[in-house]
Simulated assay, not measured.
Amino acid sequence: MEYRCYLSLGANLGERGETLREALRRIAALPVTLLEAVSPFYETAPWGKLDQPSFLNAAATVLTSLAPRDFLHACQSIERDLGRVRHEHWGARTIDIDLLSIEGFTSDDEELRLPHPYMTERAFVLVPLADIAPEHFVKGRSVRDWCREVSREGVVPAAELSDPWPLRLLACIDADRGLGKNGHLLASVPEDMARFRQLTMGQVVIMGRGTMESLPGRQPLRGRVNIVLSRTLPAEDAQGFLLCRSLAELWTLLGKLALAHPGRIFWCIGGAHVYEELLPYVREAYITELTASYAADCHLPPLGSVICTGREVHPGFAFCSYCYPMRMAVIGKGV
């Protein structure tokens, strides 16, 4: 039997956004479980106990064949693994995953009360949930209707990515998965360059120091937002680029870009180290696969459990696209 579950997630300690995204990634990785939708993140004022930092909150819908209590226990295990310690009721926490309701299922015991007894009173629950499930009925009314009954004061959109897998990967590899040699591309393929330009124009490209230094004149790619992820690049050498020293800085910057320009695509364009570092956050990969081998000195890491969604064969190469099925959650856009 499958259950559609509605969740509320919150965090107000540590790297809040990445903790929420990691919780979502772990929920998606549970057995016989599909992460269906994730709302945008909201910055929210504390509720219940006011003398604590503000929260990031989100909602999610999940389709699972786990029994309700097994799913609850799995979520509690994720909380513990991510550092949640239940010292104080309504107190500060690294991560909170609340099971709000399950379609066609109710419960009223000490361990599991569904629907959640407070969900229709809390704007930080209802506003994100209305983004992804406005017509879900709770206590005889839709989430949209309940949302109209609460004050949205203190609940504002956050400049923080909500997508657990916000990146797309773009690469050209040879028959041995090679990426380059001596800091240069392995081959000049005009069709690949045209495809690269078509996919990335007007979007955001994320690269490492080596890829930046290989660009003609070390100049940013025109018509795109250029981000360099590097812990060692001197700031004075990054003129025209946005420089991030860590993943935390990258997620913060991408969150601001996403809020300012919704719909922009974030492309990871190399090199090998950046591909390896960012691969856990990629939902789709677009690969130009060359037929020949070129004795490369750097290689694309294995993509893992992907499925091929397209293959266009040309003389000497093929345009291929891949996706991670478990990473294809729909991100809510608001109502």
Rank of each mutant, 00 (worst) to 15 (best):
residue 285 A to Q: 04
residue 316 G to K: 11
residue 327 R to Y: 05
residue 164 P to A: 10
residue 327 R to S: 06
residue 219 Q to A: 11
residue 256 K to Y: 00
residue 92 A to W: 05
residue 22 E to H: 07
residue 220 P to Q: 11
residue 197 R to V: 10
residue 178 G to W: 03
residue 117 P to A: 05
residue 198 Q to H: 12
residue 300 L to Y: 03
residue 218 R to I: 08
residue 269 I to N: 04
residue 262 P to D: 01
residue 197 R to I: 07
residue 301 P to F: 02
residue 12 N to H: 00
residue 4 R to L: 12
residue 117 P to G: 04
residue 123 A to K: 01
residue 292 A to N: 09
residue 78 I to M: 12
residue 198 Q to R: 14
residue 141 R to M: 13
residue 126 L to R: 06
residue 211 T to C: 09
residue 106 T to P: 06
residue 119 M to I: 03
residue 135 E to Y: 09
residue 162 S to N: 06
residue 170 L to H: 09
residue 236 E to N: 14
residue 305 S to N: 15
residue 222 R to N: 13
residue 142 S to L: 01
residue 232 T to S: 15
residue 289 E to Y: 06
residue 271 G to I: 03
residue 44 T to G: 10
residue 102 I to N: 04
residue 134 P to A: 00
residue 326 M to S: 14
residue 52 Q to D: 08
residue 72 L to F: 04
residue 313 V to H: 09
residue 55 F to W: 04
residue 268 C to P: 08
residue 146 W to G: 02
residue 15 E to Q: 15
residue 247 L to F: 05
residue 64 T to V: 01
residue 227 I to C: 02
residue 197 R to D: 10
residue 147 C to W: 01
residue 254 L to T: 00
residue 281 Y to I: 04
residue 248 A to Y: 03
residue 324 Y to T: 13
residue 328 M to C: 13
residue 181 K to R: 15
residue 269 I to C: 02
residue 242 L to G: 06
residue 33 T to N: 03
residue 258 A to H: 08
residue 4 R to F: 09
residue 94 T to P: 08
residue 228 V to M: 05
residue 73 H to M: 07
residue 206 I to G: 00
residue 77 S to I: 05
residue 44 T to A: 14
residue 92 A to K: 10
residue 78 I to T: 04
residue 185 L to V: 05
residue 225 V to L: 15
residue 149 E to L: 15
residue 134 P to C: 00
residue 321 S to K: 08
residue 290 L to Y: 03
residue 120 T to Q: 12
residue 174 D to V: 08
residue 196 F to D: 07
residue 93 R to M: 02
residue 325 P to N: 13
residue 322 Y to W: 10
residue 227 I to D: 02
residue 157 P to S: 14
residue 313 V to C: 05
residue 41 F to I: 13
residue 289 E to K: 11
residue 149 E to N: 02
residue 138 V to R: 01
residue 259 L to F: 12
residue 43 E to P: 01
residue 335 V to Y: 10
residue 222 R to E: 15
residue 152 R to V: 09
residue 123 A to V: 03
residue 144 R to M: 12
residue 132 I to C: 08
residue 96 D to M: 03
residue 311 R to G: 09
residue 18 E to F: 05
residue 295 A to N: 10
residue 164 P to K: 10
residue 152 R to F: 04
residue 195 R to Q: 12
residue 146 W to I: 00
residue 136 H to L: 15
residue 36 E to Q: 13
residue 37 A to C: 06
residue 97 I to R: 04
residue 326 M to Q: 15
residue 264 R to E: 11
residue 143 V to H: 09
residue 235 A to V: 14
residue 101 S to L: 15
residue 38 V to K: 06
residue 295 A to M: 07
residue 43 E to G: 07
residue 96 D to T: 14
residue 308 C to P: 14
residue 20 L to Y: 07
residue 116 H to F: 03
residue 140 G to L: 07
residue 278 L to D: 12
residue 334 G to Q: 07
residue 147 C to I: 00
residue 310 G to M: 07
residue 114 L to Q: 05
residue 290 L to W: 02
residue 60 A to H: 03
residue 95 I to H: 08
residue 253 L to N: 00
residue 139 K to A: 14
residue 118 Y to G: 08
residue 190 P to C: 04
residue 264 R to S: 06
residue 190 P to V: 00
residue 270 G to L: 03
residue 155 V to K: 04
residue 273 H to L: 15
residue 290 L to A: 11
residue 56 L to T: 06
residue 330 V to W: 09
residue 287 I to M: 05
residue 152 R to A: 11
residue 266 F to P: 13
residue 9 L to P: 06
residue 3 Y to E: 01
residue 254 L to Q: 07
residue 180 G to K: 13
residue 277 E to F: 07
residue 263 G to V: 07
residue 185 L to R: 12
residue 268 C to S: 13
